[in-house]
């Protein structure tokens, strides 16, 4: 009788523990087992900004893969971003473009893919040709400041 209650409680304990592990695996990390089959494609950028490894790769806001590595091409010093794409998305046109985008004004950066119209599909090891680098906030701000400064001077003149 006593032993039975103990066993039931231990059963509950194990259940909760395993449920917690499951939740961590599926709900928290999203991709259990590190994702199934993937294939690697590369994209060359002038500037990757604040892009990190493991950042998501998305098409139209849907995650299809993640950034696997970021390195520098030793010859022309451009940044090469390797992306692991889920193998179920194996029909990306070969003229797909890639751009580095930011979620929100200051949020994390991710790679957005823009599917093209070719009939040929991207395969393992292919390199994307149309890329757009990360928007650099500093240069945006300085542009904005310069133009504002110019405007401010003009308006000041007008008032007087």
């Amino acid at each position: 009788m006593k032993q039975k209650t103990i066993e039931i409680w231990v059963g509950i304990f194990m259940m909760i523990g395993i449920a917690a592990l499951m939740m961590l695996a599926f709900k928290v990390s999203g991709s259990a087992g590190g994702g199934g089959d993937v294939y690697r494609i590369n994209a060359r950028f002038e500037n990757v900004g604040g892009l990190n490894e493991k950042a998501p790769v998305m098409i139209g806001g849907v995650r299809i893969g993640r950034v696997a590595d970021i390195r520098i091409d030793k010859e022309d010093f451009s940044a090469v971003v390797g992306m692991d794409i889920d193998s179920k998305y194996d029909n990306l046109p070969s003229d797909t473009g890639a751009s580095i985008l930011t979620s929100g004004l200051l949020g994390a950066q991710f790679v957005g893919l823009d599917p093209g119209a070719e009939d040929l599909y991207l395969e393992k090891g292919d390199e994307l040709e149309i890329t757009q680098s990360a928007i650099q906030l500093e240069s945006l701000i300085s542009q904005f400041m310069f133009s504002q400064a110019g405007k401010g001077d003009n308006s000041g003149d007008d008032d007087n």
Binding site: V28, S29, S31, G34, P56
Partner: peptide, 11 residues
């Protein structure tokens, strides 16, 4: 969370 937490590296 799901985008940033890796199963192998973190969990």
């Amino acid at each position: 969370m799901q985008n940033g937490v890796d199963f192998v590296d973190d969990i």
